[in-house]
Structure formats: structure tokens, C-alpha cells
Design a protein around this nucleic acid. Structure first.
Lengths: 194, 194
DNA sequence: CCCTCAAATTGACCTATGGTAAGAAATGCG
DNA sequence: CGCATTTCTTACCATAGGTCAATTTGAGGG
């Protein structure tokens, strides 16, 4: 086992029970990769071919529309990130994934990941568990977008990702929340006072 | 095999390749259930314990907030529906699932579904595939909620679920789109004219 | 066939958020 | 340290969508 994979190992063990030797074999397929701040892990019109597990650092996934960035997800330590649509369908992505900090990650290719899933019941179950959890958090997000106003979404974001508020520039949090930086600035002013 | 399960069989075969005898065995665990219009498949504060496959009819999943309905999903023929969060976590749901038409469905309990998943690699893969697809469509929805205005979301809804526009009252489509019935009415007026 | 009730429309008005622009503050780099 | 660039704030006005109330439309039951 390589040193970089211990966080990943812990994370996977937290998801489902996997026999030690299976787990060790899986970890061999993850390759350490490093991205400097502003580097891209994925760019529009590529086919997403790597799933990343973030060991340290921070990345954002976003798409462009009329030159405007719409952030879909932040991924930090112990998060996975990929464009699932492109990764699974082998079609071109419409997303970018970009490092917001110098980032150390472990990458696994589509073919290798698939091979792992197909090679063992435990891995397939692990894949299902990851997909289940993604779906649940995506339901939360889409419900919140129709149910809550921007102030509530910001308050929730601070509660759910407390570390990120200091690490992500405000205009990107605004983008993630679906509002303008100006609106977020006003919301923050309101919260400090009455 | 029971008659009601042929649609489900077709649907499952479309997702992943499953040996015929495994598939036949699985179908035995699905029980036909019927709901009259307005009946509830699931109510707030229950633990979601059944996953439904809709053979015919139409249901909505929604939650209440200050007496207002926020519709999260419509499920019609050949759709699955469940509150994934509650179903997987065994915690109380905050959703309702209610029939909008007389509905014939196939239900499988959490325990039986889990047993099927655990019993065979093919079923686990099928479960993963379903979860993957849910996640992808949820990503689409949440992206659209931050990226598109109400007019675009309505146009997309008509394109993606063309049958539903005639079967679902307008005020429910509005709720699904995250706007008021009045706004949807104005949007429709605009679309007819300029 | 009418009556009733729910749904849809419309109009007037209101509020949250967006757009633009400018300046202030913070950050990063030579 | 100090300049340059990015980010944040503020102010002003514009707009999408919300609220409320009044009609109108439409569907189902008696």
C-alpha cells in the first residue's frame, strides 16, 4: 500500500465493510496526482475519465453560461469528485473541475474503477453506497433551492461546510448558492446587524 | 412470474444484464399494490419502508413548509419512487408521496430489497445503476435551478416530461418548478404571444 | 343540466434579488 | 514595503417572481 492511500482507506472502510486484501488491492489502482492552485482536473468538452479522491486541498466543479460561472460542488479533504454524467456515459462534459488550493488527490480511471466494481461484490456495493449518498445529498440541495431563500441557504451552507467559509472566496460561495456576490454581501451585512 | 411484473422486468433488463432466473426470483418479492387518487403511499413522520415501481397511474412526492407544498418529483408509468433518505437511513421521512391518479404499483420492502441486493452481484449492480441514474438526474435538476430562469425550466419540463403537462394540474407543475401558480400562468401567456 | 368548488387567470402592488458602477479593502507579488 | 489585482462593499435602479384579491373557467356530482 502507498502512503497517500491511508485517508482513502479510512474513508472506504467507513462506507462498507470490505475484506482487507480486497481493499489493499483496490488502493493499488489509485494514482497520486497533484494540482497547483488554478489548475484544471477536468475541462469542458473532455470526457471525464478520472474519479478523484481529495487528500488535501480544495477544488470546485462548475459550468459556464454566458461567461458566468455556476458552481455545482466544492470538494475538500476526503471528498470524491467527478462529473458523474460524463464519467458514466463517456460523453463530453459541460463542467470544469479546478483547484482552488494546491491539491493532492488520488485518481482512478474509468476502466480501472469499473474493473474493480466488476471484480467484486464488495466493490460494487461500495459503488452503490457512494451513489446512494450522492443522490441523498443532491435531493437535499435541490429541495433547498426551491424551498429556502438565499439567506437560509447561506446559513445552512455555513453550518454544513463550516471549514469552507474561510477557504472559499465569497463570490464563489454566492455562485454555489445561486445568487450574485452583491446579494451575498448584503445578506451578510443583515446577519451581522438585525 | 406474476402478470403485473412484466413492465418491471422490461425496465430492469434495460438497466443491466441480469440472468433470467435471478430476475424471475427477484420479481417474486414485488407485491402489487393499488392506490386511489389522493391516497398516500407515504406520509411525513413515517419511516419509508417500501420502494414502488409504478405500473400505471401517477404520484407526486412533496414536502410541506408553512402549509405550502413543495413538489420534488413526479413518478408515472415505469418510474421508481421512494424517499431514498428515509428508506436507507431508517429515519422518519419529511416527505409525502400521494397518488394523483388511480395508481397500480409494485412494492418491495426495505428488508426484501436489501436481501436481494446482498444475494447477488447482479442485483447490487442494478441497485448501483439505479442510484447512479438518480444522481445524474438530480444534478441536472439542481444545476437548472441555479442556472435557468422559470421560463426555461418550464420549457425544459415540457420537453422532458411531455406527457405530464396534460396530466398534472398547472399549480403542481409550478410547485415542481419552484414558482407560484400565478407566475406559471404569466409565463404561459407570454409563450403563446410574443 | 345546473351548481359547486377547485383551478386558472388577471391586475395591482410588493419584495428579493440582479445589474451596473464605483470605491474600499484585502491579497498577492515584485 | 508598495503596487497591482482581485475581492468585497455600497448605492442606485431594474426585473423576476411573490402576494393578495377579484374574476373567469372548467370539471364532476347531484
Amino acid at each position: 500500500m502507498i502512503a497517500e492511500s491511508s485517508q482513502l482507506e479510512t474513508r472506504l472502510k467507513g462506507l462498507v465493510r470490505v475484506p482487507e486484501d480486497d481493499l489493499a488491492r483496490a488502493l493499488l489502482f489509485f494514482t497520486p496526482v497533484f494540482f497547483k492552485k488554478t489548475e484544471y482536473l477536468l475541462s469542458q468538452d473532455q470526457v471525464s475519465n478520472q474519479l478523484y479522491f481529495i487528500n488535501s486541498g480544495l477544488v470546485k466543479s462548475y459550468l459556464l453560461q454566458d461567461g458566468k460561472e455556476h458552481i455545482r460542488q466544492f470538494a475538500a479533504e476526503n471528498d470524491f469528485i467527478v462529473d458523474l454524467q460524463s464519467f458514466l456515459s463517456r460523453q463530453k462534459t459541460s463542467f470544469f473541475i479546478q483547484a482552488l488550493e494546491d491539491t493532492a488527490a488520488l485518481a482512478i480511471s474509468f476502466d480501472n474503477l469499473n474493473m474493480l466494481f466488476e471484480s467484486s461484490f464488495h466493490f460494487m456495493k461500495l459503488g452503490k453506497t457512494l451513489a446512494d449518498q450522492s443522490a441523498i445529498s443532491l435531493i437535499r440541495r435541490s429541495v433547498s433551492l426551491v424551498k429556502d431563500d438565499a439567506k437560509k441557504r447561506y446559513a445552512d451552507f455555513m453550518k454544513e461546510r463550516p471549514g469552507l467559509v474561510q477557504r472559499v472566496p465569497q463570490f464563489m460561495i454566492a455562485s454555489y448558492l445561486g445568487i450574485t456576490p452583491e446579494s451575498l454581501s448584503r445578506i451578510r451585512k443583515e446577519m451581522v446587524h438585525g
